[in-house]
């Protein structure tokens, strides 16, 4: 769930058409029309006011403005069978109620519900539940894990920098690596047991 209270606005006089804002927008709401001297245009229907564009614009051409009527985006969990939500989360080795986006408070279950209702990319998930639109950094991996668990093919935005790919989890670390660094303070074995306990904690959908 995400309350949207801002939107991005481009000053065409300052925009150089460098395309950086287009490459970093997590909801793919920015387009530069034309190959030369194009200006950024923002689709306000999908812009969530995350500020990635204004933060990376080197020319001060994008600013965030207050939205007169804030709106909320969310996926109602009641629209999806709780068992299916739970199964998908656990397959991704996430507890359904685990928070995956610290900025919006989005839990794995809401992302899973969005996927089960048809979202097939991080961009679509951001547009429907708002995750990835606060800090734009920390929540990409659990989202990718849920998409992969649902059998979705991961396709980064062409020429975009939004995200590149899935990375290892604690479950992927080879025993040899765990053993090699155990005496250096990396408590992988113990942390694996912790995650296992989390996954065994009760969920609404069973499991």
């Amino acid at each position: 769930m995400r309350v949207i209270n801002m939107f991005a606005e481009v000053d065409p006089g300052k925009c150089t058409g460098c395309r950086i804002c287009e490459k970093v927008c997590p909801t793919v709401s920015i387009k530069i029309e034309g190959k030369k001297k194009g200006k950024a245009t923002i689709d306000l229907k999908t812009c969530v006011g995350c500020g990635a564009c204004s933060e990376r614009c080197q020319f001060g051409a994008v600013v965030l403005r207050n939205l007169q009527q804030p709106r909320t985006i969310r996926v109602e969990l009641g629209r999806v069978n709780p068992k299916k939500i739970s199964d998908l989360c656990l397959k991704a080795k996430l507890h359904p109620q685990q928070v995956v986006c610290f900025c919006t408070g989005t839990r794995a279950e809401e992302v899973a519900a969005a996927i089960l209702l048809g979202a097939s990319s991080p961009e679509e998930i951001s547009r429907t539940v708002g995750a990835r639109t606060g800090c734009k950094v920390e929540c990409i991996q659990p989202i990718l894990r849920l998409l992969v668990a649902a059998g979705k093919e991961l396709k980064p935005v062409e020429n975009g920098w939004q995200w590149y790919g899935l990375t290892p989890t604690i479950w992927d670390i080879p025993d040899s690596v765990m053993k090699k660094y155990a005496s250096r303070g990396f408590y992988f074995k113990e942390d694996r047991e912790l995650f296992a306990k989390l996954l065994e904690a009760e969920t609404e959908g069973g499991g």
């Binding site: 995956v100 920390e138 929540c139 991996q141 659990p142 790919g165 290892p168 989890t169 303070g185 942390d191």
Partner: peptide, 17 residues
């Protein structure tokens, strides 16, 4: 590091790893 790595840090590897 890029955001993929930072997300790995805070979600994938555990509080002590």
């Amino acid at each position: 590091a890029r955001l993929e790595t930072r997300s790995t840090y805070h979600h994938n590897l555990g509080p002590r790893g």
